[in-house]
Nucleic acid binder design. Structure first.
Lengths: 108, 108
DNA sequence: ATCGTCTATCGCCGATAGACGATGAACAAA
DNA sequence: TTTGTTCATCGTCTATCGGCGATAGACGAT
């Protein structure tokens, strides 16, 4: 899991990390990219560009954001790039949000 | 549910709505606000301000963002404001993300 | 009526996000 | 070598975010 133990009093530092993860997901283009990556096994940048109707540089930026957030794995392959969804990381984010939600709903 | 039917080809408009919800959650202050709202039953703006070490106007803005996103319910109460987490809406967001994740992991 | 408190909103700002085109590096093919 | 393709990066522009102080409205208390 990603919850280290229990933070000082509550979980303040955690808010930061959860927010950062969610920020990477809070753009329609990036969600669309994730969907496309998971649909087609192999994915180079060009493929996403064709699918998405955005400039190549823009797509590259979004991919970088996803990679930096640890949600997508990157592997250079010849002159192409190989992008692949990191399912585990993605599941982690979902779990973090779920955890936040349940903790918010516990004292309902 | 929030999925209208099935969009044109895939689910493009859906990416938009999911992204919008997640955007509301992608700020540490707002997550902290959610936690605080759920912890203490009643919550006026002032209470959050004291807890959060941010200017009152800033907190009010964050609260507005959460309310606009439908994650927090708002009810004016005298000269105070009553803010309350909308647990169902929050659960919906979590479910949406979980759905996205599983759909991305299905073709693993 | 006046004062103090609590809010929401406005205006302003610096910083960042998101888009693009241009460019150069890396590589395959000719 | 030259050409074409793919990609990341740079610089630029615009819009939005996130913060603040100031302000005005609503209300309770005096």
């Amino acid at each position: 899991m990603n919850t280290p133990l229990i933070e000082k009093t509550c979980g303040f530092a955690d808010s930061q990390s959860v927010a950062a993860k969610l920020a990477a997901l809070s753009h329609p283009a990036r969600i669309e990219i994730l969907r496309h990556l998971s649909a087609s096994r192999s994915c180079c940048c060009r493929e996403v560009v064709d699918h998405l109707d955005l400039a190549q540089s823009t797509v590259s930026q979004h991919l970088k954001i996803l990679v930096d957030a640890g949600l997508v794995r990157y592997e250079p392959d010849r002159q192409r790039s190989r992008y692949q969804v990191d399912s585990d990381a993605l599941a982690d984010v979902s779990a973090s949000l779920a955890e936040l939600v349940t903790s918010c709903c516990s004292g309902r």
